[in-house]
Design a binder for these strands. Sequence first.
DNA 1: TAAACGTGGAC
DNA 2: TGTCCAAGTTT
Length: 435
Amino acid sequence: MPKKAIKFPTDPKTGKKSRTTPNPLPGLETAAAAQGCSGRPPRHLPPEKHIPALQNALLDWFAVHQRALPWRNSYTPYEVWISEVMLQQTQMERGVRYFIRWMERFPDIAALAAAHEEDVLRMWEGLGYYSRARHILAAARKIMAEHNGIFPRDPAAIRALPGVGPYTAGAIASIAFEKKLPCVDANVERVVSRIFDVDSPVKQEPAAGVIHQWALRLVPEGKARAHNQAMMELGALVCRKKPCCASCPLGAFCISHHLGIEDQRPVPGKRATVTPVNAVTGVLRRGEKIFVQKRPASGVWGNLWEFPGGRVEEGESPEQAVVREFMEETGFTVNVAARHGIIRHGYTTYRLTLHCFGLDLAAPGKDCTPETCPAPPVLTAATQYRWASPQELEDLAMPAAHRKLADSLFSQPGQTAGASTMPRQGRLTDGTDTD
DNA sequence: TAAACGTGGAC
DNA sequence: TGTCCAAGTTT
């Protein structure tokens, strides 16, 4: 006897044909108005009676397949918090490495709150999105000042901490304190949008609200910690961009899988266009010491140290650009003394080609030392400057591209013209392929 | 709402 | 080589 069939309606937006398919979930019905959230409700609603089965299947899977992660030992609020922020837009393996090192350096909230921002940023160097590190420090100090040094349990208080948005607040509240709240990250968006066949861009309304409502509804009472982690773990290990439906514990509950369209979920948003940027930077050495400056707190690479530089303007050579930029940012008149090569750096929205130069002071005081230099810089793009020794340079937080350049300076001792050398394998190109 | 905010890995 | 993207938040 054939299984009862369920009719899926034509999507008014995509005009996708309605289709008849064996009913995967007896009782699964079109329920346009059943979801009380704002925005367009989901078209399909599993009946209440299926939710416990889904939850149990997920929890059983998680119990077996969860990865061993350093913050999954004791689930202290501090560890949960730091791990959640570190993992934002960051791959798991890197996040774990940084987390372990961080906890050795800042073992608790009090130690973190007492730290200098420079040291916090140095621990964060290479992770990117440095406002996360500055926000973490500010939040630690707020917890000391306003919460007696105890991480707050109240979701509203958690959400009020700097750098804690809706996702992170839900994650901390549920994972550290077992609060019945969802945490919707890209993993959960993927899982929910596939199970419930959300057919509009997941980052925008109405899909975002629909997904949030579903994510909340799926959280089992008293098991928010395991459930929310399981949702994310499933998204990370099974329900990936290319899903492994054969090994998915929720296959029996997944509408888009039964429709055979799981590869069309989630619906992506707009793409950002990548802009090529030609830039220069210059290393000004006076004996052992090297000139670096600290960027403003706002904007890209906030409060990190860098070598001065900037964009190459239209019709300008990189050599001309670095001389001009150095004058504009420091007041120093410089000459190009060496080519240090090219660093290519990929971004979300930029593709940076950074031309690196060794510089000499042109005038005045060409033979002054860092201590006696008569003309201090006039900073226009920075808040501080420093003539740093190699060891001091090592201790400053720098953007990844500038760190590569800094490292290259000391791996080729005695070199002044770097055009023919390769400092560390693959880190700098020799510039002969310049555009 | 959209743009800014980093970086390195995967394909 | 180019594109996408990995446990998002702020402005």
